[in-house]
Amino acid sequence: MRYLKGYSLLLLMASLAACSKSSNTTTLVGNWIKRSEFEGVARTSAASFVIDNKAYVGTGYDGTNRLQDFWMYDADQNQWTQMTPFSGPARSNAVGMAMAGKGYVGTGYDGLNKLNDFYEYTPPPVNSWARKADFKGTARYGAVAFSLKDLGYIATGYDGNWLKDNWQYNPVTNTWEQVQSLNSGKRTDASVFVIDNKAYVCMGTANSTAVTDFYSFDGDTKTWTTLNPIANVNDDSFDDAYNFAGSGSASFAMKGKGYIVSGIKGSYSGAVWEYTPGTDRWTQKTDFEGAARTGATGFAVKDRGFVVLGASSSLNLDDMWEFDPNAEYNKND
């Protein structure tokens, strides 16, 4: 599913039926805390990156228009500030990443065309965008992006076919180079998080089927390692198929662990899963406290994880939540 032209009645019904907490809330660990709403218009499929402990979020789709505005979130102040708008064409389903103190946004969908352009953002006091060398892979949307050792990568996505290729960007030389593709598992609308110089790519769909294979990419060897499928979980008391495999989930990493939040998993899901690299296993955590959604944006600042924006059926959302994975659930905060 690619969230480009609205949402079906079936998903609307699923959204209305979804609960913000699972029946296992009292036995799961983790607490969600509501934070300052995004100050731009509600949207889905935005791009984001983090520079110097500030999160930057922009572009996306508000249900009518693709967008160009960009905003900075200060976690210490719990405040959003509008920044210079993205200088490329308005778009959704783009990728964002940061490296060497600058942010990057590229690829995506403008409502008519798949895109391959690529832009660099210099944070305040400069606060400006500059176009860089176009992405050398095919124009696409629904890709993932990550950075390792000040090199950027764009992988997977959809260009009319599902993809598993991987391209490296060098900001010093402003050049692209194709590197090793995923071992298998073509996909779009996947999730990625980075822990200790490795990027972990999971989730997504291909051929209208949720993908369950799972890989890590090493920033030193520049090779992929096949990990256990995402159905391998720590606690057999929970149904490992419950709200896991799917697409459009938010993701982030903090304190040496990765997190997958909400998304489309048969229907709208509020499930939250925590990945531990040392065991190559997943643990279910307390469900997301906001409305179950797709196309949300996840990021981590100062080892604090956040989820913002997204859509639940035809309703675009602007709320933001912080997750404490080790706290007891408190419904009143």
Score class of each variant (00 low, 15 high):
residue 5 K to W: 12
residue 5 K to D: 12
residue 6 G to A: 12
residue 7 Y to N: 12
residue 7 Y to A: 15
residue 7 Y to K: 14
residue 9 L to T: 12
residue 9 L to K: 13
residue 10 L to A: 13
residue 11 L to Y: 11
residue 13 M to N: 02
residue 15 S to K: 03
residue 15 S to I: 03
residue 16 L to N: 08
residue 22 S to P: 10
residue 22 S to T: 15
residue 22 S to A: 08
residue 24 N to S: 13
residue 26 T to I: 10
residue 26 T to Q: 15
residue 27 T to N: 11
residue 33 I to F: 06
residue 42 A to G: 05
residue 45 S to K: 11
residue 46 A to C: 07
residue 47 A to G: 13
residue 49 F to R: 11
residue 50 V to R: 04
residue 51 I to R: 06
residue 54 K to D: 08
residue 54 K to L: 09
residue 64 T to A: 11
residue 65 N to S: 15
residue 76 D to R: 02
residue 78 N to M: 03
residue 78 N to E: 11
residue 79 Q to F: 09
residue 85 P to F: 00
residue 86 F to T: 00
residue 88 G to D: 06
residue 91 R to K: 10
residue 96 G to I: 10
residue 100 A to V: 01
residue 102 K to V: 13
residue 102 K to R: 13
residue 104 Y to D: 04
residue 108 G to W: 01
residue 108 G to E: 01
residue 109 Y to E: 04
residue 111 G to I: 06
residue 112 L to C: 05
residue 113 N to Y: 14
residue 116 N to V: 00
residue 117 D to T: 13
residue 117 D to P: 10
residue 118 F to H: 08
residue 119 Y to K: 03
residue 119 Y to Q: 03
residue 120 E to A: 14
residue 121 Y to D: 07
residue 127 N to W: 03
residue 132 K to P: 04
residue 133 A to P: 00
residue 137 G to L: 07
residue 145 A to H: 09
residue 148 L to V: 05
residue 149 K to R: 09
residue 149 K to P: 01
residue 150 D to W: 02
residue 150 D to P: 11
residue 151 L to P: 00
residue 152 G to C: 10
residue 159 D to E: 12
residue 160 G to I: 07
residue 164 K to T: 09
residue 164 K to Q: 15
residue 164 K to N: 15
residue 164 K to M: 14
residue 166 N to K: 08
residue 168 Q to K: 15
residue 171 P to M: 08
residue 171 P to E: 05
residue 176 W to R: 01
residue 181 S to N: 14
residue 183 N to Q: 10
residue 184 S to N: 06
residue 185 G to W: 03
residue 186 K to Y: 14
residue 187 R to N: 11
residue 187 R to Y: 07
residue 194 V to W: 03
residue 198 K to A: 10
residue 199 A to W: 10
residue 201 V to E: 05
residue 201 V to I: 14
residue 204 G to M: 08
residue 204 G to K: 03
residue 206 A to Y: 11
residue 209 T to K: 12
residue 210 A to V: 07
residue 213 D to S: 13
residue 216 S to V: 02
residue 217 F to L: 03
residue 217 F to E: 04
residue 222 K to D: 02
residue 224 W to Q: 02
residue 227 L to W: 00
residue 228 N to W: 00
residue 235 D to E: 08
residue 238 F to W: 07
residue 244 F to H: 14
residue 245 A to W: 04
residue 249 S to A: 15
residue 250 A to H: 11
residue 252 F to S: 03
residue 252 F to A: 07
residue 257 K to A: 10
residue 259 Y to F: 15
residue 260 I to G: 01
residue 260 I to Q: 01
residue 268 Y to R: 04
residue 270 G to C: 01
residue 278 G to V: 08
residue 278 G to I: 02
residue 283 T to W: 00
residue 286 T to I: 05
residue 288 F to H: 01
residue 291 A to V: 08
residue 292 A to M: 09
residue 293 R to M: 06
residue 297 T to D: 06
residue 298 G to P: 06
residue 300 A to T: 11
residue 300 A to E: 10
residue 303 D to G: 00
residue 307 V to E: 07
residue 308 V to M: 09
residue 312 S to P: 01
residue 313 S to T: 07
residue 317 L to S: 03
residue 322 E to N: 01
residue 323 F to Y: 12
residue 323 F to L: 15
residue 325 P to D: 05
residue 327 A to S: 00
residue 328 E to D: 04
